[in-house]
C-alpha cells in the first residue's frame, strides 16, 4: 500500500492514540477544596466561626480583669484560670448552630449546587463516575468539617493563651494534667466533634441529591439538626434520644475526665458511623441511577 492510499480517517486515528487512564490522583479532591475554600461565602462563614472564640475571650477578659476570680458553670468559669478553656467554651457554643450550619451549607451545595449551576451534566460527561463523584464530594465535606472544628478550637486556644495564659489543665474530674496532655485531649475533642459533623455531612449529601436548590438542601439539613436538638431536650422522649443524630455530640466532655469515660464516646462514634454509612449509601442509591435533567 502506497502512502497515497492512506485515507484521511486512518491518519486521524493514528494521530490520536487512546489516552491511557492515569493512576488515581487527588486532583478532583483538590479541585473540590479550591471550589469550597475559594468561595467568598464560605470564607465569610469560616470568619464567623473564628469570631466566636474571639468574642468569648474578649468578653470574659473585660468582665474579669483579674485572672483567677471567675465563677460560673462549665468551661466559662475556668477560662480566667487557663486560656485553654476558651477553645472548649467556643466549641460548646458553636455546636448547636454555627458548626452544623457551616457543614450543612457545604453538604447542601455538594450535588444540588452543581445541578443548579448546570455543571453537573458536564462533570458527568467528562466523565466522572457517579460513585467517584459522591466519594470525592463526601471527602471534601469531611475535610471542611475537620477544618471548621480545628479553626474554632485553634483560634480559641491562641486567643485564650494570649489573654489568660496557659499552664496545667484542671480536668472535669478535678485532676490536673500537664498542658501537653491537655492539648492532646483538645485534639481528641475536635476529632470526636468532627466525626459527628461528618455524619451530618452525609445526611446533607443525601438531601443534596434530592433537589436542584442548594439553599433548600441546606435549610432542610439545618431544620433536621435543630429538630434533633429539640427532641433531645424533651425528657418524655428519652427512649428516642440514643437514636438522635445530635444526642451524643455533647459527650465530648467525657474526654476531659481522668480516666477518659469511654462508654458514651463509643456509642457516639457508633451512632455517627451508622448515620454516615446509611446516608452516604442512600445518596448513592438515589444518585447512581438518577436521570440528570438539570
Amino acid at each position: 500500500m502506497s502512502a497515497a492510499e492512506v485515507s484521511a480517517a486512518d491518519l486521524a486515528v493514528a494521530a490520536r492514540p487512546p489516552r491511557p487512564a492515569r493512576a488515581p490522583s487527588t486532583r478532583f479532591l483538590r479541585s473540590e477544596l479550591r471550589l469550597i475554600f475559594g468561595r467568598r461565602r464560605n470564607q465569610a462563614g469560616l470568619g464567623v466561626l473564628a469570631a466566636v472564640p474571639l468574642v468569648i475571650a474578649v468578653a470574659v477578659r473585660i468582665a474579669n480583669p483579674e485572672p483567677g476570680t471567675g465563677e460560673g458553670p462549665d468551661f466559662f468559669s475556668s477560662i480566667t484560670g487557663n486560656g485553654f478553656f476558651v477553645a472548649l467554651a467556643a466549641l460548646t457554643v458553636s455546636l448547636p448552630l454555627f458548626l452544623p450550619l457551616a457543614v450543612a451549607t457545604i453538604a447542601g451545595d455538594s450535588i444540588a449546587g452543581e445541578a443548579n449551576a448546570g455543571t453537573l451534566r458536564y462533570l458527568l460527561t467528562v466523565p466522572v463516575h457517579r460513585t467517584r463523584a459522591l466519594l470525592v464530594k463526601f471527602a471534601a465535606i469531611v475535610t471542611f468539617a475537620v477544618t471548621a472544628t480545628l479553626l474554632v478550637a485553634g483560634v480559641g486556644l491562641l486567643a485564650g493563651l494570649a489573654l489568660f495564659g496557659g499552664g496545667p489543665v484542671t480536668l472535669l474530674s478535678g485532676v490536673q494534667v500537664g498542658f501537653g496532655d491537655g492539648l492532646l485531649r483538645l485534639l481528641a475533642v475536635c476529632g470526636y466533634l468532627a466525626i459527628g459533623l461528618c455524619a451530618l455531612g452525609a445526611l446533607g449529601l443525601f438531601v443534596s441529591t434530592l433537589t436542584e436548590q442548594p439553599i433548600g438542601a441546606t435549610i432542610a439539613v439545618v431544620i433536621l439538626t435543630v429538630t434533633s436538638f429539640v427532641l433531645d431536650s424533651i425528657p418524655q422522649l428519652s427512649w428516642l434520644h440514643p437514636y438522635l443524630l445530635t444526642h451524643w455530640w455533647m459527650s465530648f466532655g467525657d474526654l476531659l475526665r481522668e480516666p477518659v469515660f469511654l462508654p458514651d464516646l463509643r456509642l457516639g462514634l457508633l451512632s455517627a458511623g451508622a448515620y454516615a454509612v446509611v446516608f452516604w449509601t442512600a445518596a448513592w442509591a438515589r444518585f447512581a441511577g438518577r436521570d440528570i435533567t438539570s
Binding site: R19, A21, R27, F28, S31, L123
Partner: peptide, 10 residues
Amino acid sequence: RLDAVDRYAD
C-alpha cells in the same frame, strides 16, 4: 476544573 476531574488528562 474540568481538566482536573478527567482521569485521562495528564
